[in-house]
Write a protein that binds this DNA or RNA. Sequence first.
DNA 1: CCAGTTGTTTCATTATTTGAACCATTGGTG
DNA 2: CACCAATGGTTCAAATAATGAAACAACTGG
Lengths: 257, 257
Amino acid sequence: MGTVSKALGLLDFLSRSDAPLGLTELARLSAFDKATTRRLLLELVANGFVEQDPDSRGYALGPALQMLGRAREGRFPLFRTCQPFVRALAEKTGETVHATEYCAGALVSVCIELSVRTIRVNLDHGQKLPLHATASGFAFLAASAPAFAENCLKKPLTGFTSKTPSSREALLQVIAETRARGYSISSQTFEDGVHSVGAAICDNAGKPVGAIALAMPVARATAVSTAEYGLLTRHAADEISHKLFGRRPGSALRKAS
Amino acid sequence: MGTVSKALGLLDFLSRSDAPLGLTELARLSAFDKATTRRLLLELVANGFVEQDPDSRGYALGPALQMLGRAREGRFPLFRTCQPFVRALAEKTGETVHATEYCAGALVSVCIELSVRTIRVNLDHGQKLPLHATASGFAFLAASAPAFAENCLKKPLTGFTSKTPSSREALLQVIAETRARGYSISSQTFEDGVHSVGAAICDNAGKPVGAIALAMPVARATAVSTAEYGLLTRHAADEISHKLFGRRPGSALRKAS
DNA sequence: CCAGTTGTTTCATTATTTGAACCATTGGTG
DNA sequence: CACCAATGGTTCAAATAATGAAACAACTGG
């Protein structure tokens, strides 16, 4: 693993913790040596990617990330574009809806709108959703080029629940079904009690860049509501794709490569 | 220079360009070898900090930056906090107002509200303002610990206009005046024709984290308007400091440790 | 078809990273 | 108050990863 990746990995740990992290703790989490961890941190600090509280000596995410994040949002306004659709879908259905973007092997949630009901699915911002175990992931894989999906199948498919498709064949079948259906269904494949439907957001070339998904408690899921919400989700994904890339909807499930 | 800094430097180039950059161009900008540049980029891509358009082969900022930026904004809501004050000040005065945060040796603008007048000062998002040549920088230095300011004085003080304080003594005097006055004044020290006033945003310990500044065309600047706007800016800075850190205003110019 | 450009790979050289051990400082405890 | 434990920070020889010149490949436009 290159030095750069190690340093960037530290940012990941910092993003997951709410409070600033100490050097030893960070070294333990990352499994790097204390001296190495420190050197990496110093370099990150010098560039504004991390900042250190002078008295607590804890390290936290730095301002450069906000600058760069803003710059990217300016050029590729995924959040701004998704939000109205996500909100509309959440209001219409009364369930939790969220949009995700593909980032480094997983889908990361960009925009979340929680259900208003007392029993609802809760999601964290920035949570990483695995491709092989979530509705968003199924939709993404179904819209991906075969080579990409194949590459994903090679990695170990960790099981999260008893229903996670953990064999190559099971996952391929889920993908095929998703393609035929037009939207994906995940029934407790990632977390027990959660039932969700998803659809991919695709660019001009048909390559998926992310997904939108609706999640409900399995107790509220019926065949009818699943189908209805699935189509609505699919429709929202097409509209977002269109707004972002000027893409004509309807071809969202064919892949170009 | 460490490898990590080199890689992070590439992000900086990408953030400055609107369109994706090619490998050769990026190598030329960064003055690294083509092979080196490529290796660094690949590592950044693998972590989601950069993404490569498959057909144009150009590199651009990646989604991870948005994720991490959002995470930081969640814990330290500088933008959200500054915006109402910046807007209010801009509306009240009719001039361009912006808030900046200290990041890696310079102040980077976080939040900008442009004047509505036909002749106005224009600012770019994410522009880096040098500490020794801008109203924001003067205010920041005046609120900094002596050791910090001293360290800044050691670096070469590049002159941007004929009025930039380019000697150690000149800058020290500007800092002393700023401290006595309560707000900073920059009369064409960074860009010809721009006159601005600024005040530092400080944390609980009195350490500055950024600044807020108001910029107007020098033609509109009078002693009276400068004093009035200076006080207003100072007031806004105190309010932001208070909102962010619960800091009691009034001590913004004393430094602790 | 050729010249010019850009992206990609290779590999010996070199410089950077690494980590075990060591010091410094802090905070808690009998 | 001395002691201990824990944490942050520092050092330096050994090991490893980064470097860049050069060669190669893939396009592009004339």
